[in-house]
């Protein structure tokens, strides 16, 4: 499968990734080459094969519903790009 510049721009939007216009053709070429590699999977007959999500087919453990984490808000906010009064600041969402 081959991807064109418009499709790459759409995928980049889905991924919330800004790509410079001049880089789009190169990504389109690389992604098409990767999808061509991936298409080699189609040579395999996988009818009736159960998909493997976990290497050891283990199920996820459940933990008891108890508080295990102490409040470390100040510690974690020390590395945030922008905070005020204990809140993370982002551009205004509602005008």
């Amino acid at each position: 499968m081959s991807l064109g510049p418009a499709e790459v721009a759409k995928i980049a939007h889905l991924a919330r990734l800004a790509i410079r216009d001049e880089d789009v053709p190169a990504y389109a070429r690389n992604l098409s080459a990767i999808l061509e590699l991936v298409a080699q999977m189609n040579a395999a007959d996988t009818a009736g094969v159960a998909p493997m999500a976990h290497p050891l087919d283990m199920t996820q453990r459940l933990r008891s519903d108890a508080v295990t984490e102490p409040d470390q808000r100040e510690h974690f906010q020390a590395i945030a790009p922008q905070v005020e009064a204990g809140l993370y600041l982002v551009p205004k969402v509602i005008e």
């Binding site: 991924a15 990734l17 790509i19 990504y27």
Partner: peptide, 15 residues
């Protein structure tokens, strides 16, 4: 994200 990730990471996120 566009500024933070380099080309190989970007490629894999897009794929």
């Amino acid at each position: 994200r566009g500024e933070g990730f380099g080309p190989e990471v970007t490629r894999r996120i897009l794929v």
